[in-house]
Structures are given as C-alpha cells and as structure tokens.
C-alpha cells in the first residue's frame, strides 16, 4: 500500500510546530537547540517528500537536504560551543540567567 504524500506533510508540519512550541516554552538551552533541530528537520522532510512524489525525475530536493543537514550540524556545533562557554561561567544552561541586557 502506497502511503499518500499528505501523510508525510502532516508529520512534517506537526514536527515543525512542535519545534516552534518547544523553542518558545523551553527554559533549558539544550532543549531549545533540540527544538530548533526539529524545525530544520521538518523542512528537510518536506524537501525529500516533494522530490520523491512530485518531481522524481531530478534530485534537487535530495541534494538540498544533504546540504541543509550539513549546515544544521555546523550550527549545532557552534551552539554547543557557546552553551559550554556559558556553562563554564554560570554553571547552568538556563535561559533565565541570560537576562543581563534587557530593554
């Protein structure tokens, strides 16, 4: 049985907005980072699904996904580096402690 395209799109949309929800509500920076990854991966799923179902003659969507995954990895590495630096100074990774500068 073929799974319809819309099923994948529903999954990726739920993933994306779960990521948005997590990014807004979570207090821990690592959890926020995971939420960001969810959002990026949801967009990647969209690319792959569109490529596989709608435009199977070219591989543009797959290629884009590969590059997007690479960039997401770089972004995670950088975020982890900054988070470790913050942890060294204030001994936790809670965003509520990053409130030195406010309007």
């Amino acid at each position: 049985m073929e799974i319809p395209m819309i099923a994948y799109l529903v999954v990726s949309t739920i993933m994306f907005f779960a990521g948005v929800y997590g990014f807004v509500t979570r207090k821990n920076m690592l959890a926020m980072l995971i939420s960001l990854e969810l959002m990026l991966n949801a967009a990647d799923i969209n690319f792959v699904v569109f490529n596989r179902y709608l435009f199977p003659e070219a591989l543009e969507g797959f290629f884009f996904t590969l590059f997007a995954i690479g960039i997401a990895a770089a972004e995670t590495a950088l975020a982890i580096a900054i988070i470790i630096n913050i942890f060294r100074h204030i001994r936790n990774v809670d965003v509520h402690n990053l409130d030195k500068m406010k309007y």
């Binding site: 990026l40 990647d44 969209n46 690319f47 569109f50 709608l54 543009e60 997007a68």
Partner: peptide
C-alpha cells in the same frame, strides 16, 4: 533560517 527553509520547501513543492 528554519522559517526560511520551510518557505523554500513549499516553494520547491
């Protein structure tokens, strides 16, 4: 960039 990427994926679709 995640928002931008989602927009791009729709554009590709």
């Amino acid at each position: 960039s995640a928002l931008f990427l989602l927009g791009l994926s729709f554009l590709y679709g």
